[in-house]
Amino acid sequence: MTKILVLYYSSYGHIEQMAQAVADGARESGAAATIKRVPEIVPPDVAEAYGFKLDQAAPIAMPDELADYDGIVLGIPTRFGGMAAQMRNFLDQTGGLWHSGKLIGKVASIFTSSATQHGGQEATILTSIPTLLHHGMIIVGLPYSATDLMLLDEVSGGTPYGASTLSGPDNKRQPSARELGLARTQGRFVAKVASRQRQGNDAETGQTDQAS
């Protein structure tokens, strides 16, 4: 069975909700989806003072376990148009995986959030992609077959680079049904691509074994 990891960081719970929707979509495509999060690096007293959601159910991931999955979907909130430091800190610990080539050929995708409608969502996804390419991963976005990307009747996240949500400047806005739907679609699409890639790798391995 194709294995998908939804790995996220979430200060206020918005990306946490999106991560669940991505995992639901992956499961709808027949994949086994696991949700984990990266460690918080903000001191506990500071996190509490700023109202961070610290009681999240997802277990903490370890960098080396990324190699155990066929596809990895990263939930990365934007910070001034770039990757949140918590995710950057985690990915900076994957040098061993890079050195051994353990992520080469695996599928990767990204979803994000921002406080405002033009708060750097696309910039965050685009500037995060080089890290995944250095690992030799296959990048998957959110195709326009997800027709909700086309709608203009409400303020909503969603880009062809990946699903997204808006939290509002006070972090009180929650992911909308449309945004969660786009996240599920992304999860389904990633799982389908990862399944095809896994089948291709299995077939190639079989041919190599026969040739030897």
Rank of each mutant, 00 (worst) to 15 (best):
residue 171 N to T: 12
residue 200 G to D: 05
residue 95 G to H: 00
residue 81 G to P: 15
residue 7 L to G: 11
residue 129 I to K: 03
residue 187 G to F: 01
residue 4 I to N: 10
residue 142 L to Q: 01
residue 209 D to Q: 14
residue 181 G to N: 12
residue 167 S to A: 14
residue 14 H to G: 08
residue 116 T to D: 14
residue 53 K to S: 06
residue 155 V to D: 12
residue 165 T to N: 04
residue 78 T to I: 09
residue 199 Q to T: 08
residue 132 L to Q: 02
residue 162 G to K: 05
residue 9 Y to L: 01
residue 212 S to P: 02
residue 168 G to E: 14
residue 105 G to H: 12
residue 17 Q to C: 06
residue 183 A to K: 00
residue 197 Q to C: 11
residue 169 P to Q: 13
residue 73 V to D: 04
residue 83 M to I: 09
residue 104 I to Q: 11
residue 194 A to D: 10
residue 46 V to P: 03
residue 177 A to T: 13
residue 156 S to F: 02
residue 115 A to F: 10
residue 43 P to T: 15
residue 31 A to V: 03
residue 67 A to Q: 01
residue 55 D to L: 04
residue 166 L to V: 13
residue 80 F to H: 14
residue 54 L to M: 09
residue 34 T to W: 03
residue 153 D to N: 12
residue 38 V to H: 06
residue 145 S to K: 13
residue 193 V to D: 02
residue 104 I to W: 05
residue 103 L to D: 07
residue 3 K to S: 03
residue 112 T to P: 05
residue 149 L to T: 08
residue 140 V to E: 11
residue 95 G to W: 02
residue 195 S to F: 07
residue 33 A to P: 03
residue 48 E to Y: 00
residue 61 A to E: 12
residue 164 S to P: 07
residue 134 H to I: 02
residue 199 Q to W: 06
residue 149 L to K: 07
residue 56 Q to M: 09
residue 109 S to G: 05
residue 196 R to P: 00
residue 170 D to I: 10
residue 45 D to K: 15
residue 93 Q to D: 09
residue 100 S to P: 00
residue 205 T to N: 12
residue 35 I to W: 05
residue 38 V to Y: 02
residue 180 L to S: 01
residue 109 S to W: 04
residue 147 T to S: 15
residue 210 Q to H: 13
residue 14 H to E: 04
residue 182 L to M: 05
residue 9 Y to H: 13
residue 199 Q to C: 01
residue 86 Q to T: 03
residue 119 G to H: 12
residue 184 R to Y: 05
residue 101 G to R: 08
residue 11 S to V: 01
residue 90 F to M: 06
residue 195 S to I: 00
residue 156 S to E: 06
residue 167 S to K: 08
residue 70 D to P: 05
residue 20 Q to R: 11
residue 38 V to N: 04
residue 103 L to R: 04
residue 90 F to T: 04
residue 75 G to T: 09
residue 121 Q to V: 10
residue 124 T to H: 08
residue 108 A to Y: 10
residue 204 E to L: 14
residue 47 A to N: 05
residue 145 S to V: 12
residue 10 S to W: 03
residue 77 P to K: 04
residue 70 D to V: 06
residue 170 D to Q: 14
residue 133 L to N: 10
residue 95 G to M: 01
residue 124 T to G: 11
residue 193 V to E: 06
